[in-house]
Design a protein around this nucleic acid. Structure first.
Length: 896
RNA sequence: GGGCGCGUAGCUCAGCGGGAGAGCACCACCUUGACACGGUGGGGGUCAGAGGUUCGAUCCCUCUCGCGCCCA
């Protein structure tokens, strides 16, 4: 017997363990079935399950379970990402608690410590994914720092280097002073900061008392200025181009140059050019062949070593003592000191508050500093070409399609990808330096040594590059490295390319684009045929969830409170095309009601002896009720399947919801009650059909609500424990003359609806049954009424159904159903005025509809130009409206 | 500044050339033999605004207003 209420906590753990232990999640590389593959976006090994995970993994699991039920050989590849910076930060924090640091214990011990941390704490997220019900093929779990994946990383690096697609260069990069590492431009987010625009006077060389005024938000980088730029068309400065200004505080002469980068509208129209500390200035510097002295070090403190020799004392403009006092100062302290000094020297024209965009490290949260350093770069421009082509030709398709624009916009404007990071946790760059800094790139130290020995003609001591690779470098290989590449494994042959990648738009650039590049280059095919982009999860008010706002909703808490199925169903319901979803506890509570409803419907079935009947042949069903519900189930199957195929999770959920609640429960089970009570052959057929349809429903629901559906599947005897997950997705069954069954049941439903409405509006107490009289009913209608007497009686509280013979009694309420007028003799209780008002309202509504249609059909332009079927449809609607209108008017006359 | 998207019932959202929809919330009634995490009935919308195309526009085009996001 099923429990009175569904208790998710009592069954979820057990059901999941049963699936996992029985191998239900396992791919079947030896089978001949068509494959269906999804690579999990590997969550950070440091992570714990948040709402974004709940969304993306629910969607993936829904697809996976659906395709698995369709008989596909499904591979859902699990794994985690080593997440360079994030993980290093976590372990550094732990070290700080024990009064030590990464530098104190050294690289080797630190890396070992991270591995140990990963052994102890890295499994959190995978445990939590099990709570959600994710049917991942766990024995295949990979980690981006695994031996195999690391080998793939080295192989890719070495290959790309050999092909000239990876090289080392000294370039301006985004430097994070907190992590003291380069970061990629994607890891930089610009934030609006209230700052100050300072207007500084640069004295013109050899022209006492004359100045050129430059406007800047970063006076501390002034020390590294190498020019002042003005727009070539700016008449204010035309005379100054080619002359020299004196750099305040440093005393160096710098040229005034003409460059279109300078915006006459902004500030004073003249800008200082500091190539080593600004990306735009860097380009100006390159165009004009200017020097590029650095004045900030790796911790963003002032350094003078590259400008000291250019110092040239000048009274009232530059004094050495002040300049030296800046050395080693933090950038912000230096800014204050410099502004103060300029003000004292009378070189500060003015300052004005200004809101401007300042680049920040997305993880460190500190302003990033463009810095000239030696780094490794990957030629993304070249690698992007086939990836772009793949999307252009539709080899890979984005869903929704609009994201392709975003993808193209980014892919067509790529900068070299800086792939080196000055961290310790990650894949160490397989490059070694000889005594003269010659570079040897190889898979292993031994191979590098061999290369070096050959190069130098003798064995030499090599030093490996200290840097590690950007975490996204290894993630980019995920779709093939997890399958065993560079080995030619059967998995690699069988499961690459994968079917669909499911992810949020925020990592299209970080990850999707890079997988496309690497996939093409090394596998010569796209990594996935479709990219399904879902929205972000927001709180119920549409706010982005964040710790600082305190509006985080914890999926595990929701699972504890409402069950995993409720959370999953809520997510599936809300996931429409390309929209963020707003998810609060109320939505999950509502979804739980649905799961409970299913549970109770199944309980009713169980109580009424509804068990699957292997002998039942749907095509042989004779009762209209059975044929009707089987047909409705067929349509639900069609809708749900089409919705899933189109990634319309909202429509899939709606199809299941509508069918389960508003067809199966609201009507079918209610109609079934009298049949079941009557017993006999009719009851037997209803039981068998009910079991058939409930089985279909459980199968349709399984991808969204796996736990409850699996539990019911077993308890109601559909199959052995844990077998629903392996059961075939339902197909429509043959139903004899479905049209007539549909016509009949639709009529019954409408009749009951009309009677209920009239009764409710006439305030007939539910406890008082009323007879109904059918006026002008055709014989077939009267036969129908007779067949459904029992059900109509129960559901519409009707005591008796008769054909009206002769004149209607006084004091009636009336309604129109097709050709018949339904008359409720309510002499004792009816309020004639109220009934007249009600009928009048109805007549008005139908009359307006008829009038509108009549006008439309009278319009020559419409009739001649609109498609014939549209015109015909309008004619039919008009005829129906006019007939109903006539009956309503007759009804009104009767009670006048 | 450039690009993308969104403004449809109180809320959350479907629909996207021919009858304005769902869920929740709301109101009224109901402890009917699976379910009050329930049942029945009901109210509620110049589909942001203005033009245009069309026989016909919530839907296509243009502009305006408002709100997001991404890139400068």
């Amino acid at each position: 017997m099923l429990e009175k209420t569904y208790d998710p906590a009592a069954i979820e753990g057990r059901r999941y363990a049963e699936w996992e232990e029985s191998g239900a999640f396992a791919a079947r590389p030896d089978s001949s079935a068509r494959t269906f593959t999804i690579m999990i976006p590997p969550p950070n090994v440091t992570g714990s399950l948040h709402m974004g995970h709940a969304l993306t993994f629910t969607i993936q699991d829904t697809l996976i379970r659906w395709r698995r039920m369709q008989g596909r050989d499904v591979l859902w590849q699990p794994g985690t990402d080593h997440a360079g910076i994030a993980t290093q930060m976590v372990v550094e924090r732990l070290l700080a608690e024990t009064q030590t640091s990464r530098r104190a214990i050294g690289r080797e011990a630190f890396v070992e410590r991270v591995w140990r941390w990963r052994e102890e704490s890295g499994g959190t997220i995978t445990r939590q994914l099990r709570r959600l019900g994710a049917s991942l093929d766990w024995p295949r779990e990979r980690f981006t720092m695994d031996a195999g994946l690391s080998e793939a990383v080295r192989r890719v690096f070495v290959t790309l280097h050999r092909e000239g697609l990876i090289h080392r260069a000294r370039r301006l990069v985004n430097w994070d002073p907190k992590f003291q590492s380069a970061i990629s431009d994607l890891e930089v987010e610009s934030r609006a900061i209230k700052g100050t625009l300072w207007h500084i006077r640069y004295p013109m060389a050899g022209e006492e008392g004359k100045f050129i005024i430059v406007a800047t938000t970063r006076p501390e980088t002034l020390l590294g200025d190498v020019a002042v730029a003005v727009h070539p068309a700016d008449v204010r400065y035309r005379g100054l181009i080619g002359r020299s200004a004196i750099l305040p505080l440093v005393g160096r002469r710098i040229p005034v140059i003409a460059d279109e980068y300078s915006d006459p509208e902004k500030g004073s129209g003249a800008v200082k050019i500091t190539p080593a500390h600004d990306f735009n200035d860097f380009k100006v510097g390159e165009r004009h062949g200017l020097p590029m002295p650095s004045v900030l070090d790796r911790e963003a403190r002032i350094r003078l070593d590259e400008i000291r020799e250019n110092f040239s004392p000048l009274a009232g403009v530059a004094d050495q003592e002040f300049l030296e006092s800046l050395a080693g100062q933090d950038r912000f302290a230096a800014r204050e000191a410099i502004v103060q000094k300029l003000s004292e020297l009378g070189l500060l024209e003015k300052s004005e508050p200004q809101l401007h965009q300042v680049p920040h490290g997305d993880r460190s949260g500190v302003p990033i500093e463009p810095l000239l350093t030696w780094q490794w770069f990957c030629n993304a421009v070249e690698l992007a070409k086939p990836a772009i082509a793949a999307v252009e030709t539709g080899r890979t398709e984005f869903v929704p399609k609009q994201w392709e624009n975003t993808f193209f916009a980014w892919m067509r404007n790529l900068e070299p990808w800086c792939i080196s990071r000055q961290l310790w946790w990650g894949h160490r760059i397989p490059a070694w330096y000889g005594p003269d800094e010659k570079i040897f790139v190889a898979d292993t130290a031994e191979e590098a040594a061999a290369l070096a020995a050959k190069s130098y003609g003798r064995p030499v001591e090599l030093r490996q590059d200290e840097d590690v690779l950007d975490t996204w470098f290894s993630s980019a290989l995920w779709p093939f490295s997890t399958l065993g590449w560079p080995e030619e494994t059967r998995e690699l042959k069988r499961y690459y390319p994968t079917d669909v990648l499911v992810t949020g738009f925020d990592i299209i650039f970080f990850w999707v684009a890079r997988m496309m590049m690497m996939g093409h280059h090394f596998m010569h095919d796209v990594p996935f045929r479709a990219v399904y982009i879902h929205g972000l999860v927001r709180d119920q008010h549409g706010q982005k969830m964040s710790k600082s706002k305190g509006n985080i909703v914890d999926p595990l808490e929701l699972i504890d409170r409402y069950g995993a199925d409720a959370l999953r169903f809520a997510i599936v319901q809300l996931t429409g095309p390309g929209r963020d979803i707003k998810l609060g506890p109320a939505r999950v509570e509502t979804a739980r009601s649905f799961v409970t409803k299913i549970w109770n419907a199944a309980r009713f079935c169980e109580m009424n002896g509804i068990r699957p009947d292997p002998e039942f042949r749907p095509e042989a069903a004779t009762l209209p009720l059975c044929r009707w519900v089987l047909d409705a189930a067929n349509r639900a199957i069609g809708e749900a399947t089409a919705a899933l195929a189109a990634y319309r999770f909202d429509e899939y959920a709606a199809a299941c919801y509508r069918f389960a609640w508003h067809v199966f429960c609201d009507w079918f089970l209610e109609f079934a009650k009298p049949e079941l009570a009557a017993g006999g052959a009719g009851a037997a057929e209803v039981r068998a059909a009910a079991a058939q349809v409930l089985g279909t429903l459980l199968r349709l629901l399984h991808p969204a609500t796996p736990f409850a559906s699996e539990e019911l599947w077993e308890q109601l005897g559909y199959g052995p424990s844990g077998s629903l997950i392996r059961t075939r997705w339902p197909e429509p069954v043959a139903v004899a003359d479905a049209d007539s069954a549909r016509a009949e049941l639709d009529w019954v439903v409408r009749l009951i609806g009309e009677v209920r409405t009239v009764r409710a509006e006439m305030n007939v107490p539910p406890a008082t049954p009323t007879p109904i009289l059918l006026k002008d009913a055709m014989p077939t209608t009267l036969l129908r009424a007779e067949r459904w007497r029992e059900a109509i009686g129960r559901l519409a509280r009707v005591s008796e159904i008769r054909a009206l013979v002769g004149a209607p009694p006084r004091g009636v309420a009336q309604a129109v159903v097709d050709e018949a007028t339904v008359i409720l003799p309510l002499a004792e209780i009816v309020d004639l005025a109220a009934e007249r008002a009600r009928l009048d309202r109805e007549r008005g509504k139908v009359g307006r509809e008829a009038e509108r249609l009549k006008q439309k059909l009278a319009d020559q332009a419409f009739v001649s130009r609109a498609p014939e079927e549209v015109v015909e449809e309008n004619r039919e609607r008009l005829a129906a409206a006019e007939a109903e209108l006539a009956r309503l008017e007759a009804a009104l006359r009767r009670i006048a």
